[in-house]
């Protein structure tokens, strides 16, 4: 941790508004990326972003310097997102019917990559996933949680976690294939996209 970041953290602990603003400016991009992955849309993500930073400033005394501050901030935002999901009472998520999947694919505007960068388009595709699928996909693939940990966090069974992850990947691959066409083969057959 740099001295500059340490000073900012110390200022935030003392309630210094200037330090809080500096911390916000430094972490708003990372935090907003996390929020977008878990939210249904950008408005929802902005609410999560606002609530998450309030939680960061409130609980910053709990950060004792052990481990990465970036990681601690990410965990705060993930927890805020999970609490937000609990509030919406979206768990447990029932298995999605194939009809719903087909309807979703039909309704999807496959122009997400036309005028934006790939990451933003990918985010928008993920936001098309059912909340449960998206949450399990985020926790497993991007946060590194195990299925047991996911089951504990979301109050579901390990089997449900595995099932939802599998279905989420299937849906996402289908979305990418339809949107990217032949390029998506690289994701499923030969390697990571762009190689």
């Amino acid at each position: 941790m740099t001295d500059y970041l340490q000073q900012i953290i110390e200022g935030c602990r003392q309630g210094d508004r200037k330090a809080q603003r500096q911390l916000y400016e430094q972490y708003k991009g990372i935090a907003y990326g996390v929020c977008l992955r878990y939210a249904d849309d950008s408005h929802d993500a902005q609410d999560l972003l606002q609530e998450g930073f309030i939680r960061v400033f409130r609980d910053i005394n709990q950060f004792q310097g052990a481990g990465s501050f970036d990681g601690w901030v990410r965990r705060v935002f993930v927890n805020v997102a999970l609490q937000h999901l609990k509030k919406k009472r979206s768990f447990p998520v029932a298995a999605m019917l194939e009809e719903e999947l087909n309807e979703l694919q039909d309704d999807t505007r496959w122009s997400v990559f036309d005028n934006d960068d790939l990451s933003a388009g990918l985010i928008r595709l993920m936001q098309q996933l059912p909340t449960g699928f998206r949450t399990v996909l985020n926790l497993y693939v991007l946060e590194g949680y195990s299925h047991a940990e996911i089951a504990d966090q979301l109050s579901i069974s390990v089997g449900a976690s595995k099932s939802q992850l599998s279905r989420a990947k299937t849906m996402l691959r289908a979305m990418l294939e339809k949107n990217l066409g032949a390029d998506s083969i690289y994701l499923t057959k030969t390697g990571a996209y762009g190689k």
Binding site: K28, G29, Y32, L49, A120, L137, V141, A192
Partner: peptide
């Protein structure tokens, strides 16, 4: 799998501006 690596590469360091 490759989808995991693709997602991690595209999203882990994604920092959009709010």
């Amino acid at each position: 799998d490759r989808l995991d690596a693709f997602l991690q590469k595209m999203l882990e360091d994604y920092t959009p501006a709010p």
